[in-house]
Amino acid sequence: MIEDVEGETPRLEGDARPTQFFYVYEQGGAIVGWALGAERGNDAGYVAVDRVIVHPDHRRCGVARALVERVLADHADIEVLMAAWDPELVPFYESLGFRELEDGTMSKSPPH
């Protein structure tokens, strides 16, 4: 189950940018994954996904896919950007419709 956590959302250490969404994936009463990010700037025109984290015991079980799909569903009318910290994750993001930009950022534009 994915839950949108309302109220105070976490900040990454040293990050002054506000977090506007924080989703957790729960299984058996435990949080096994989470995603956070925010729309950037005034009328920036994109959403930045700062982190998608999955507990090692729950990787390759659809948790990250479900979290990213939720982000895409909730922000379907705006470009979604995320960094593929691990080059091995590029095919995963491409399978969700992202394309890799020259700087390594993954981008998914809204349908036209």
Rank of each mutant, 00 (worst) to 15 (best):
V24T: 14
V63P: 06
V52I: 15
A30W: 06
A35Q: 06
D4H: 13
E13K: 15
R65G: 13
E39Y: 03
D77T: 13
A35R: 07
P56D: 12
T9D: 01
E13L: 13
D4K: 11
A44P: 11
V5Q: 10
P18G: 00
E26K: 15
M1W: 03
V47H: 03
R99Y: 11
M82G: 10
P91K: 04
G29H: 09
R11L: 11
L36F: 06
E100V: 10
L81S: 03
L101I: 00
D43Q: 12
R11S: 12
P91W: 07
Q27I: 01
R51M: 14
E26A: 12
R40C: 10
A76H: 14
I78Q: 10
L101Q: 13
R59S: 07
E102R: 12
D4P: 06
A64F: 06
W34T: 07
H112P: 15
D50K: 06
A44Y: 13
C61A: 15
D86C: 03
V71A: 02
I31T: 15
A16T: 10
R99E: 11
E8V: 06
L81C: 09
A16N: 08
I53T: 12
Y93A: 04
V80Q: 07
R65Y: 02
V80L: 05
D74V: 00
R51A: 14
E79D: 12
G14C: 00
Y93T: 01
A73F: 08
G62D: 01
R70S: 07
E26I: 08
E69L: 13
G37T: 08
E39F: 00
M82I: 13
V24Q: 11
P18Y: 01
F92G: 04
E102F: 01
W34Y: 14
K108I: 04
L72K: 00
G62S: 02
V24W: 01
A30N: 11
E94H: 03
I53V: 15
I78R: 13
E26L: 11
A84P: 04
L12V: 09
G41R: 12
R11P: 01
E69D: 04
D50C: 01
V49H: 02
R65H: 07
Y23M: 04
N42I: 14
S107L: 13
T9V: 09
L67I: 05
W34P: 00
E13S: 12
K108A: 08
A73S: 14
D74K: 05
M1Y: 08
V71T: 04
V71N: 04
W34D: 09
A66G: 10
D15Q: 08
P111T: 14
P110C: 04
D4G: 01
S107Y: 00
D4A: 14
A84G: 03
Y25E: 09
A83G: 12
G62M: 01
R70G: 02
L89T: 14
E13G: 06
M82V: 09
V49G: 02
